[in-house]
Nucleic acid binder design. Structure first.
Lengths: 213, 213
DNA sequence: TGTAAAACTTGATTATAGTCAATTTAGTCT
DNA sequence: AGACTAAATTGACTATAATCAAGTTTTACA
């Protein structure tokens, strides 16, 4: 019996003492779910979901009913801080894209915990700050007038983030195009165009950024 | 008239009551620094810096060691909201390019405040959650393919938020167009088009939404 | 490994929205 | 109130990217 603490997979809890981790762990409900299971929907959203093992995606539905991917989730990721804190969710879904082990932490339990433990509150503040950073990045990207500019800024960001001019696109073009507010076709064209201009060297999702864009 | 609270410039604190803001303000160090002073570096970045008066620049070092300016900072700007909350900075620098008056809030002080006042922590958490919600809303809007859809969803959102089919646009068209990822001209056209179609009734920034969009 | 399903690419066409420029309208200040 | 400035509207034109469709490549899985 390996006493796996699933909260340990979450950076948010990882730096807590083992005792605190056990405290949190006691509040958590463990579940094994099949690929395709929707674990968060507007009707059922007062919870934090931690992915102990598996993959998923966070998306919303547009007016036209199309899925718009906002984040790709993988082992150790978590989602639902805003819902835990009482923000009502009217349009977000989390769907597991593989069979997964997940942990669910309900709002009432968690609120009590952070009231009693300020160090946990601080960690949560940090996590939210990082997310705000990401979302600001995205709104900034999507606000740029041309797709070329959006792609250039995105690639530059990847270079800075991964610390190398050889970067790996972390998303499928389909999802990346959604992230950048465009279509897979246009994105594909822009990438081949950069390739022809000698600005990047691409093989699949491996891209070497040759010139600063 | 009102005493200057430099923390008021930061959205994170803007949501706190004025008394709470004063509490935070007491933790702030005011400094006058000479042109060329580096006030944030990877070694010294656990802080929020607000520019009371002066100019600066935020930059990173590229792999080749070149400075890459990311933002130009001026009076009233701030940087490091996320660093204050624990996001680690491994590559950013802030250098003042003129003699400047700045406010510095160190993470250690801020952390103590949070630890002693869990109600502030909860307020900040809720405020950040709301901010995340807004940003998600915006990314969803900007991801929609047509301006018409974006505007329709935005108006529907306003109706829900203000609880009436008679809504007031909270922004100038210039700003709203930026928010929706378009131009003032296009936005103006779309609004007059909705007017002609009998879907809305507009006078200035007062809009009655006649049909669900 | 072989097969099917996704993902991606490429082309032709269309439509949408951006740009530039000229007016009109609203807001502000003394 | 009148004059000035900023905001909004309208028009003509252009460019960009979306769409539709057909192919190719990659990935997943039996």
């Amino acid at each position: 019996m390996t006493e796996e603490l699933c909260v340990r997979l979450v950076p948010l809890f990882n730096q807590l003492s083992i005792d605190r981790q056990r405290q949190v762990e006691q509040l958590v409900h463990h579940q094994h779910v099949r690929r395709g299971t929707i674990v968060v929907s507007p009707n059922n959203s007062n919870r934090l979901v931690i992915i102990e093992q598996g993959k998923g995606r966070l998306y919303q539905l547009s007016a036209a009913g199309e899925e718009q991917v906002q984040r790709v989730l993988t082992t150790g990721d978590y989602v639902g801080e805003t819902w835990l804190l009482g923000v009502t969710n009217s349009s977000s879904y989390v769907e597991m894209t593989t069979d997964s082990d997940i942990c669910i932490l309900d709002r009432a339990d968690f609120t009590r915990l952070i009231q009693n433990h300020s160090d946990i509150a601080l960690k949560l503040l940090a996590g939210q700050a990082a997310m705000i950073d990401d979302l600001r990045q995205q709104t900034q990207l999507m606000g740029l007038p041309s797709i070329e500019e959006r792609l250039a800024m995105y690639l530059n960001h990847l270079v800075a983030e991964q610390g190398s001019t050889l970067v790996t696109l972390p998303l499928k073009l389909k999802d990346l195009s959604s992230y950048l507010g465009t279509t897979p076709e246009t994105l594909s064209r822009k990438l081949t165009q950069l390739q022809k201009n000698g600005q990047i060297d691409r093989h699949l999702r491996q891209i070497r950024v040759l010139k600063s864009l």
